[in-house]
């Protein structure tokens, strides 16, 4: 396992409020990592920083073998580097069909003229079917994404994430709004994805995290409180105090 993403000494302040405080995390490839922590701990902001949505006040975010600095890049460039993201609130293009949503996410050239002259290939069609099968939306391909249930939208967004074929998947609360059976499927899917890539999952549901069976990072007030196996961190008195004890 080599280091894919290296976040070091990052701080972010919103109107004087320090949401991320000297945060350092490193993610390997392949690796499955769970990030937990109380509301407002900075989990989503951590993903915002990596994906270029939020610019930190200080620190470094280095990526890949060449240690590229992600902080100077635009959101779209970071995505093209191979970082995909699923948002906390499912964000799919509701006015478009499931197929169109997946097709847009498929890993292909992203320039305007590439897209203008794009011809749907057999390979892409097959890939869309595979993905739809994997996320259980095979019979919904022609439906508008806006008509799907909350859980199905979550699935669709996960499907779009896989379609991008990223090296690093950032997944923010994937299980929200899912039935227990769906949650189980989601853990399986994430574990499978993490066999070949880096996957970072933010989740509140402890059962879900337990099933992921991976290294856990506990965030609190914008920095790492504890890191290790789930059993290890849940025995940590500080973690119990700020997160589990409540």
């Amino acid at each position: 396992m080599t280091t894919l993403l290296e976040v070091s000494g990052v701080s972010v302040t919103f109107d004087g409020f320090r949401a991320i405080n000297n945060l350092s995390i490193s993610i390997g490839e392949p690796e499955l990592r769970a990030v937990i922590g109380p509301n407002g701990a900075g989990k989503t902001t951590f993903m915002d920083i990596i994906t270029g949505k939020t610019k930190p006040d200080s620190g470094h975010v280095l990526w890949g073998e060449k240690s590229l600095n992600l902080l100077g890049m635009s959101e779209s460039r970071i995505a093209r580097e191979g970082i995909g993201r699923k948002f906390q609130k499912p964000t799919v293009f509701e006015a478009q069909t499931v197929r169109e949503n997946l097709a847009m996410a498929l890993r292909n050239d992203r320039g305007p003229f590439d897209v203008l002259f794009y011809k749907r290939s057999q390979r892409d069609s097959t890939r869309i079917l595979e993905l739809a099968e994997e996320i259980g939306l095979l019979d919904q391909l022609a439906r508008k994404a806006g008509e799907l249930s909350h859980g199905q939208k979550q699935w669709l967004e996960i499907g779009m994430l896989l379609a991008q074929d990223p090296r690093l998947l950032l997944v923010d609360e994937p299980a929200a709004g899912m039935t227990p059976a769906e949650r189980e499927q989601t853990t399986d899917l994430l574990k499978r994805a993490a066999e070949t890539r880096a996957v970072v999952v933010v989740e509140h549901d402890m059962e879900f995290v337990r099933r992921l069976n991976c290294k856990v990072t506990v965030l609190h007030e914008g920095s790492v409180l504890a890191e290790g196996s789930l059993d290890h961190v849940t025995k940590n008195p500080e973690v119990i105090e700020v997160y589990l004890g409540r």
């Binding site: 994906t51 635009s74 959101e75 293009f93 478009q96 169109e100 847009m104 992203r110 897209v115 991008q164």
Partner: peptide, 19 residues
Amino acid sequence: SVIRAIRDDEARVRFLGYH
């Protein structure tokens, strides 16, 4: 598809890698 997606949620389109 991309153009309509930009109309509806341009930030999301960026995270898919489109400039």
